[in-house]
Design a protein around this nucleic acid. Structure first.
Lengths: 178, 178
DNA sequence: TGACGATATATCAATTTGATATATATGCGT
DNA sequence: ACGCATATATATCAAATTGATATATCGTCA
């Protein structure tokens, strides 16, 4: 799935500017399973407008710079329906953290702990964001599904890491006592 | 973290050819949290060899084409230790499946079921691969960590999805009975 | 006034993917 | 004996994407 389809999907839920789409995938409901940069979002929107799948309107704002608000068209909704009616590609999960843990022989115990704590913070931030998004802006049946899925997976990760963190602290204390 | 560091990390556990590295990240112990293509692995190995971080030797094989076996050097191990001794970047998780579920209003119930079943198969395949890898080739302390983490997260996802699948089948049956 | 941060768009080099090409070897059917 | 499929193995490249950087507007606070 490319960024064009990603933008169409978000715009099918609500009209938005490129900056707002970026915020959605950064801090919003999509944050834990979608990723896209300005460098791909802005060209995608321009291309979609050229193909007639979205329309643009310049919107003046008070207290902020002007923005370009993109809205999906009927043609856009059809293109979206077609693009997502396929057997989904396999999930992609890439974790520098797990890579470090795999190579923990090259890491000091202190660095290990820093990494574990960073991972816990990231996971808990994602959980907090999901909780916040789910109560304030339900965008349809689908949002419950992804909220519950995200909670299940992230909670399991936190639980395992908390256990490992305690184990690590115990080991460090034992080594310091020697 | 770039593909060069990724290759160094894998080569720190055992010497390997480019093809074998690809298999490791495709079907091996690393499959559920790492991803790299031939197009990035082969140039990375060539570059690492040029920098003195790995050595190459051509190896003839019976029943298979020749291969180039890469081995990490001391300089390579130092570069690896340095590269991974940083606060890890946030995990990246990208799921076409969850994107489809979010936009389920654009999907037929049949397509929904196909997607859910595909996701369950993918998750169970990953679990099976992890189980297989963990019993046959323990590569150090780190492998237990990533195996247990992977099991915790994937099992939670399967459990939630099995529940949702049953719910979906019930809804479809109820609708068919009308 | 000017420094800072949030909002907003745009651009581009460097990295990475995903597809394709090429070659060796085995096994399987006909 | 021949084609065909599949696994092994390396290489290359257009296209997509990232991550960094540039530019500008607006409010706030010192």
């Amino acid at each position: 799935m490319n960024v064009r389809t990603l933008c169409l999907g978000i715009l099918s839920l609500q009209e938005a500017s490129g900056y707002e789409i970026k915020k959605d995938v950064e801090d919003g409901l999509f944050c834990h399973f979608i990723d896209a940069s300005f460098g791909s979002i802005y060209p995608a929107l321009t291309q979609l407008a050229g193909e007639g799948f979205v329309t643009v309107r310049e919107q003046e704002q008070t207290g902020k710079p002007d923005k370009k608000v993109y809205s999906i068209t009927e043609a856009g909704r059809n293109a979206l329906a077609k693009a997502i009616s396929v057997v989904p590609a396999k999930d992609k999960y890439r974790s520098e953290f797990l890579f470090q843990m795999l190579l923990q022989d090259y890491l000091s115990p202190e660095m290990m702990l820093v990494a574990v704590q960073k991972q816990l913070n990231d996971l808990n931030e994602d959980l907090a964001r999901i909780a916040e998004c789910s109560q304030q802006a339900p965008v349809g049946h689908g949002s419950h599904f992804v909220v519950d899925y995200g909670n299940a997976v992230l909670t399991a990760a936190v639980k395992y890491l908390e256990y490992k963190k305690a184990e690590l602290l115990q080991q460090m204390a034992a080594r310091a006592a020697e």
